[in-house]
Amino acid sequence: MINTQLAALLTSGSFIIIGLYAAIFLDNIIKKIIGLSFIEEGANLFLITLAYRADGIVPIFLSGMNPQWFAENSAYPLPQALVLTSIVIGASTLAVMLAIAMVLYKKHGSLSTDEILGDKNE
């Protein structure tokens, strides 16, 4: 069977592809925003799978541990610290987009991208 890290990489790739598909082809603006949040989650998952170490330990340094042994088989903590902020960034971008979508709905009365963002002067 393929190991966990490769499977997790494939899942993050498929999340990014699903998100890109939704961003291009779906016409409903809320679904487009959901698709874009999938891309964000896919990128975060990608960063965490890079930090994984097969049958390693969780990167929490307890007092008694020997640093040499800890460095050799703990998962790499740096990307995990980065993903903490980037999850929050993804959520805040989503919130701003949903707010604009609500205003656009109030203005145009429909959720389909062609009507809202469609090109008038064409």
Binding site: A8, E41, N44, L45, R53, A75, I87
Partner: peptide
């Protein structure tokens, strides 16, 4: 994805993702 983070040895990220995601 939050549970997956826990499996990938990132407990604190799993917590944040569970709450946010």
């Amino acid at each position: 994805i939050a549970v997956l983070f826990q499996i990938l040895l990132a407990p604190d990220v799993a917590l944040t993702q569970a709450i946010v995601g």
